[in-house]
Design a protein around this nucleic acid. Sequence first.
DNA 1: TTTAGACTAAACAACG
DNA 2: ACGTTGTTTAGTCTAA
Length: 685
Amino acid sequence: MMVESASETTRTTPSNQNGVSSLSSHSDGGGGREGGSNGDTNGEISPVDLLHLQQQQALQAARQFLLQQASGLNSPSSNEVKQSPVQVPVSMAMLTPQMISPQQMQQILSPAQLQALLQQQQAIMLQQEYYKKQQEQLHLQLLTQQQQQQAGKQAAKEQIGNKQLAFQQQLIQMQQLQQQHILNLQRQGLVSLQPTNPMQSLQQAMCPGDLQQLWKEVSGVQSAEEALKQQQQQTGEGLDLSTNSTSSSFPKANTHSTLHSLHNGQSNHTPKRDRYRDSHEEHAGSHPLYGHGECKWPGCEALCDDMGQFIKHLNNEHALDDRSTAQCRVQMQVVQQLEIQLSKESERLQAMMTHLHMRPSEPKPFNQPLNLASSGSLLKRESEAYPEGLPHPPTSAAAPITPVRQGPSVISSSSLHSHSHSHSHSHSHSHPHGVGPIRRRIADKFCTPIASELAQNCEFYKNADVRPPFTYASLIRHAILEAPDMQLTLNEIYNWFTRMFAYFRRNTATWKNAVRHNLSLHKCFVRVENVKGAVWTVDEVEYQKRRPPKMTGSPTLVKNMISGLGFGSLNASYQAALAESSLTLLNSQGLVNPSSAASLNMLHGMGHNDVSSTVEQVNSNGSCSPTLSPQQYGHQVHVKEEPTEVEEDRRSVSLMATITHGNMALPSDRDDRDLEDELPTDELE
DNA sequence: TTTAGACTAAACAACG
DNA sequence: ACGTTGTTTAGTCTAA
C-alpha cells in the first residue's frame, strides 16, 4: 500500500556539518583561461612513441605504487572501521570535498606531467631512503644509549630513560613526518606538479575544514608528540616517565606513542642491517603488514624480529581505535586516488593509442579497477554497457575537443554538499512539515553530477535525514535511469525515494504529490502503458532541452567557483576543468551505444553544443528514449505538451564517483534492489 | 523589480 | 467508497 514513513529515522542528523560555508567567495582571481594543455599528438612517430613510453612508465609506476598501497589495506581490523561512532559525517567529510579536486585534477596530467610525476615518485623513494637512514641513525643512537645504560647501571636510569624517550619520540616523529610527507607528495603529484609547498598543495586539494579534520585525526599522535617534545625541550632533561604519563593532555595518543616508543626501544637490539639477513623468515609467515622485519603499518615501521612479535605488535599498537581508523581512512584515500589515477591514465593511454591507430600493447588490464566493479548499479550498468565493438569514439573525439564553454564540472558536488545542506536547512522553517523545497538551483548552478553526488553520498542520504540537493525531476530521472529497464512505475519511484533517502521516509503525502506533479508536468517524463500497467520513462532529449545554455561556461562563475574552492592556481584548475570535461566526455562516450550517436548529433544540431549537456545526455542513458520497445511505443498513451523547461543535472558522471563505493568506511554498497529487502516500506506492490 | 524555475498544496478525474 | 494514479492550477520562494 502506502509507503507510510515506515522507518521514522530519528537519529540525529548531521544536517549542518560546518563545512565549506560559501562557495561564492567573490574573489576574481582573474587568471587567464588557457585552452586544454594536451595538444594533439598528430606528429611524427617518434613523439608518439615517446608519449606511449611515458604513459606506460606512468602506469607501471602507478601500478606498483598501487599494489604497495593496497596491500596495506588488508589489515585484519580494516573491516571494523565502520564502527567509528561518527561514521556518516566522517565518511562524508572524507568522500566529498577533498576527493573531487585532486581526482579530477589528475585526469589532466599531460605526458610531460606524467613524467614529472614519475620523477616525483622516484624522489619519494629517495626520500624514503633518506628517512630510513635517519631512522637507522636514530636506532643506532638508541642502541648505543642502551649499551651505555647497561654500563652505567641503574644509577642514572631515569635520566637515560628520558634521553631514550626523547630519541624514541624523535623517531616516531620522523616516521609520522615521513608518512605525512609521502602523502603530501602523492597528493601533490595528483593535484599539481608544481613544486610548491606540499602542505599548500594539499590544502589546495582539500577543503580546509576537512583537511583539518582529517589531519587532526591522523596526526593526533604526532601533535601529541610534538607537544611532548616541546615540553621536553622546555624542561630540559627533567622530564621523567611519570611526568610523561601524567602530564600529557593527550592521554590516548600519548599512551599510544609511549607504548610505541617503548616497543621500538625493545626491538632495537636488532639493527636494521641485521633485519635484512632475516628476510627469509618473512616469507615463512607472510603478512601484508609485515615485511623486511618491520611493521608496514603506515607511519609505523616498528621493528619486529619475527612474525609472533609482529602479531603482538599489531594487536598492541594497531588495535581498533580512532588513530588506526583514521590511518586506515587515509590509506584508503591514497589507494582510491591511485586507483583512480591508474584507471584514468589507462584510459588515456587507450584513447591515445586508439587515436593514433596503434594497437594496445595489453588489452586494458586496468581499465576497470576492482572498485569500479563494485560500484553503484547505474554506473555499473553503464560500464557493462561499454561497447567493445566500437572503435572507442572518445579517443578521436576527446583529444581535439577544447571545451571552452564547458561548465566547470570539475567543481561539481564537492563543496556543494555542505552548502546545500545548510541551505535547505535554513529554509526548512518555512515549511510546517519540515519539507523544505529542494534547492534546485544549487545543483543547477554548480553542475552537480547527480550520479556522482549520489554515488558518493549514497549512504549518507540513506541514513541521514537530509534533503538531497536535487530537484524532484532530476531525482526521478535518476531513479528511472537506474532501473534495469529504465522504466519504473510510480510506486517504484516512490520506493526508490524512500530507499535512497531517509528524508523521503516521512511526509510522504507531500513529496509523493510532488513526484506525481513533476512526472506530469515535465515533458521529459513519458508515461508508457506496459503489460503490468503504466510505467514512467525518461525522454533524454526532452530532458536535455530543458536546460538553458546561459550558465554554460560562464567565466566568472568558473572563476568564482574555483576561487571559492581555494584552488591556488587558476590556470591549473581551469585546465583541470577543461580536461575533466573532455575526459568525462571520453569516459562517458565509451558508454555510448551506437544508437545514441544519433542523439548526440541531434543534440549538437539543436544547439546544445556544450560538452556538459552532451556528456550528461550520453552518459545518463545512451539512447534518447530509453528502452522503449516498439510495442511500448505503440502503447504509449500520452505525450505531454510542455514548453521547454529547465532542469539541472546534466553533467557528467565521473568515474571517481563509483570509486568511492569501495570506501570501506561505508557499508558495502549493494545493489539498490537488495536494499529493498531491508526497508520495511512497501515493496508489496 | 521582474522573471523564471522549483516546490508545495490542493482540486479534480479516471481507474481498479 | 476508497485508495492510487495522473493532471492541472495556484501560490510561494529563490535566484538570476
